[in-house]
Computed example of a mutant assay.
Amino acid sequence: MEDLTATNSELKRLVNSLLDGLDAQSADIPDICERLSKSQCSGYSEDKLVEITVDAYGVVIDTKLAAQALQSRSREHLAQSITQAARAAAAAAEQQRTEIISPLTATVEGLPDLSDLFPGAPSLREIRGIIGMATTPETIRRDHDSHPADLR
Rank of each mutant, 00 (worst) to 15 (best):
V108R: 11
A93K: 04
R128F: 15
D3I: 03
E109K: 06
R13E: 12
E76N: 01
K48H: 14
S102W: 07
C33S: 12
Q80D: 07
T83K: 05
K12S: 11
T7P: 03
S45Q: 07
R75A: 11
P30N: 13
D62Y: 15
T83G: 00
R125G: 06
M133N: 11
K38F: 01
S45Y: 00
F118Q: 09
A91P: 04
G132W: 09
A134M: 12
R87N: 07
S102E: 15
P148M: 00
A92M: 03
S123Y: 02
I130L: 12
G132S: 03
H147F: 01
R87Y: 13
V15T: 04
V59H: 05
E2Y: 10
S26H: 10
A149W: 05
P103K: 03
K48T: 15
Y44A: 12
E51R: 02
L36A: 03
D116Q: 01
I100H: 01
Q68C: 03
A93D: 01
R73K: 10
L117H: 03
A121M: 04
Y44T: 15
L151H: 00
I61E: 08
L11G: 02
T107V: 11
A90D: 00
S37K: 00
D55E: 06
R142C: 05
L19E: 10
K64M: 14
E34V: 14
V59W: 06
L65Y: 06
R13Y: 05
R87M: 12
T107H: 02
L114T: 09
A85T: 03
I100W: 02
A66M: 06
Q40M: 14
M133A: 12
D143M: 07
T139S: 09
T105W: 11
S81R: 09
G58K: 02
K48R: 14
